[in-house]
Amino acid sequence: MSITIKEIKKEFEKNPFLQHLGIEILSFEEGNVTIKLSVQNNLLNTKGTLHGGVYASILDFAQSMHLRSITKTRCLATSSTVHFTSPVKTGVILAKASIISQGYKTAFVDGVIKDEDGKIISKGTGTYKLIRM
């Protein structure tokens, strides 16, 4: 029996790293996943802007969640490229993803992070191995 989208969402909600960063899942439907992060002091770099590792982590969450919402299979990142376009100091950021290409075992997924005004603050692409049981 295949796993349902609600069960996949519940699995992600239990992700310890996601909880540690304070990421919220705003929507989790097939092919439509949006996640949100409120910028907190413990996520900043020494210049008071959101740490690059946080951007990369959020993109990975958005990409892997989006991919799983469609394939229903587990996936593992094998490579990632992140472009940091704007620093963020406060407020809320939102991340979404889309599939560039998907084969039986490999998928390429685009991700984008925007601020509350819709301005792009980071974009990235990840390559994921699909774990077929």
Binding site: E11, F12, K14, N15, P16, F17, L18, Q19, H20, L21, H51, G52, G53, V54, A56, S57, I58, D60, F61, R74, L76, A77, S80, V82
Partner: peptide
């Protein structure tokens, strides 16, 4: 535990952050 994903693997974000730092 805080570094792990929902499957018990180390989250990719930890690797990305380590390299960035």
């Amino acid at each position: 535990e805080i570094h792990k994903d929902e499957n018990g693997h180390i989250a990719s974000g930890i690797h990305y952050t380590l390299l960035d730092v």
